[in-house]
Write a protein that binds this DNA or RNA. Structure first.
Lengths: 185, 185
DNA sequence: TTGCGACTATACCGATCGGTATACTTTGTT
DNA sequence: AACAAAGTATACCGATCGGTATAGTCGCAA
């Protein structure tokens, strides 16, 4: 445990932002959830916008570290790792707290391309695609970038589909489609 | 032209909701954009929530009618129609006003499953999948529901991907993936 | 000409928003 | 014992939110 006050605030903000939406979450609610006050919140984060960006940047780091760890624990070969991607997101989507992808949701809440929140969200998927492209390249795919983009479309589609309606089998179908696409490439 | 005042309000609300987000759009801004007042707005729509639902329901009707019209104008056979889906969304995503899918965005802004806005958004994609499944069935697919879900994942993924970063070639790659999946089914 | 319904204009309501000012308590260090 | 830093408590700011009350304007029909 023993979290810094700053970390406690960021953690409370993350849970509320993710579960309720960013614009739907006020700074008073964050301070109360972190068992502190607005004064302390604004000591560590100069504005709500900065707190939102801090939330997304931490989410980016945490999620990517957790994700590759999960993949590496399940598969050894690049091809098996590509397929394991869909098992990992399938399990993630099954937890009750699942509310879609924080970056997709943030980009939807801040639709302008120039908005920093939107940009940070876009960068996350750039990195995600690069990771998939790396695996695709190791598989000997002729066009790893194309395959990576296609697979990431399946991932994003599955996340959004599951967010809209739970337990619709999106992850399984995404994996079946991925098998076909990987085999064809 | 000659729109009803009610239609003018709904149209102004639709443009603002889609371009800026629902929670980011106040009723004052809608009334001003429609060249009217809040009083008239509340005469036709008892609350902002009802206005939001009216916006989504009209979007659902309009988009689906426009979509099948576009498909039918481009292809005759069921298989060609399935592929035309990706041409249509590709052209849609290319217009400068494109800001993703209004239903995906709405579901992200109202993340709780029980929320009426969330439910209306989920129904749209249910209908969309049914439409695709119908085409897949006419193609003689063994499992039209599976193919339909897979193709709709590509569509949703492409929309989200293009919303995150414009001109990333999502629609083209989605179509290439769809060709492989349709041929395999 | 009178009256009625649609619409406008404007001021207002309580609540909440993001953000700040001020004063107080706690804690560890020297 | 004294002081500074960290954090709390609380009240406040102007702005905006969704929604309403009231009075007035306009065109049209009897």
């Amino acid at each position: 445990m023993s979290l810094t006050l700053q970390e406690k605030i960021l953690q409370a903000a993350a849970e509320l932002f993710y579960s309720q939406g960013i614009k739907a979450t006020g700074v008073d609610a964050i301070a109360k959830a972190a068992n502190t006050t607005k004064m302390s919140l604004y000591k560590y984060f100069p504005s709500k916008d900065e707190l939102v960006l801090a939330f997304l940047r931490k989410r980016d780091q945490d999620f990517r570290a957790w994700f590759v760890e999960q993949i590496d624990a399940r598969a050894d070969t690049p091809k098996a790792k590509l397929l394991a991607v869909f098992d990992v997101i399938g399990e993630w989507m099954a937890i009750p707290e699942f509310r879609g992808c924080a970056f997709i949701n943030a980009a939807a809440e801040f639709p302008l391309e120039g908005n920093p929140v939107h940009q940070v969200s876009a960068e996350f998927y750039d990195h995600f695609r690069s990771y998939i492209a790396g695996l695709a390249g190791q598989c000997g795919s002729k066009s790893p970038d194309s395959l990576a983009l296609q697979l990431s479309l399946l991932v994003e589609g599955a996340i959004v589909s599951e967010q809209m309606k739970r337990h619709s089998g999106a992850a399984e179908q995404a994996k079946q489609a991925a098998i076909v696409l990987i085999e064809a490439a």
